[in-house]
Design a protein around this nucleic acid. Structure first.
Lengths: 185, 185
DNA sequence: GTAGGTTGTAAGCACTCGCTTACATCACAG
DNA sequence: CTGTGATGTAAGCGAGTGCTTACAACCTAC
């Protein structure tokens, strides 16, 4: 029996609706500020189902983080810094469910911070390490990621005026020099 | 009558104890994760006094931010970047009440973010602007602050291993090249 | 059809939060 | 000594949190 459009009992559809709603809300407000009631409401689903399918808010967050954070990683390492900056600079207009937005608004919670570090941070750093032969490649890569993180934070969370108003191309040019200084200096 | 050591009714002492406790806790956990009950308990004071003297948790936070954030600003602009980096790198060992730690852990809350942007961010950027004659000085200064912010965040909040383990001198050297790239590029 | 497992729902539990209130205690002016 | 305002305290309010439970509605295998 194929998927009927108006199936009442469809756990897969409910799970996916919850995941989508959670991704959006975690991106908008961060882990802590998002309530399970909001997620369930936006998904159009009873909140008890959230716990049946994901066990806890924490595990739902981990599930959300597992999705989507792979797209950027498939780039070649050489393009990764520019791609990262571009992605971070695109956060303001898109109100969507960008995984970077989830990151930027969620590391206040210690458990969320651990997930972010282990699930996304370490993978980006490993990829960025390929950009240099320096013995302290991991440190340099960590600093690149830190600077990109700071940029996104200042722009999208702290709402720094100068950064929010500036031409993305100009910011990108400045950041490419930062990356060069870190990787080639 | 001079201050007796065991004065029972001393509003000034109570206020100061609350401010000290609040500074420490905001630095350790950030604005949201800190509860007024914790602040009052650490200050050894009834929590109702917190509201009598400061009106709200929000105003207490503003009061804490108003203190201490001036010390670094009195440096000469040329030394400011290095001093900023050094200060951020010192956060790990000191468990204390560093204003930078308050910043790093508190901007998830929108109201706290506004206070941070207006009370401390803008002042640092104004000072950093003096380091370059470029027409986009404010953007460059904002990016410097963003990178330092990202560094502190990756190290102290996200607990990035490579950054936490690295020699502070090495990190500082890398960051000075970042600052140069931003201000002179 | 009907039993039995899956899916959906309403209600509420136990807890924490910022904040308020009603009242006790103290210091000091008269 | 007494009364008055400043200071300190215990108790709790109302709202919100993550999560659980008891039960109804549904689908499917027999």
């Amino acid at each position: 029996m194929p998927d009927n459009p108006r199936r009442k009992h469809d756990s897969a559809a409910s799970k996916e609706a919850l995941l989508r709603a959670a991704a959006e809300l975690f991106a908008e407000r961060g882990f802590e500020q998002t309530t399970v009631r909001e997620v369930a409401a936006r998904a159009g689903v009873n909140q008890a189902l959230l716990f049946r399918y994901f066990g806890s808010k924490q595990e739902l967050f981990a599930e959300v983080l597992g999705i989507g954070s792979d797209s950027v990683l498939e780039e070649s390492p050489a393009d990764l810094p520019r791609r990262l900056v571009t992605e971070v600079l695109s956060l303001r207009q898109t109100g969507g469910d960008h995984p970077f937005a989830v990151m930027l608004r969620s590391f206040n919670d210690e458990r969320a911070a651990r997930l972010l570090r282990e699930r996304v941070g370490e993978r980006y750093i490993a990829k960025l390490c390929e950009l240099t032969d320096a013995p302290d490649a991991e440190l340099r890569a960590g600093l690149v990621l830190a600077c990109v993180l700071g940029l996104g934070l200042s722009r999208s969370v702290l709402h720094n005026e100068a950064l929010a108003a500036a031409d993305p191309e100009a910011i990108s040019a400045h950041m490419m020099r930062v990356v060069a200084a870190l990787m080639e200096g």
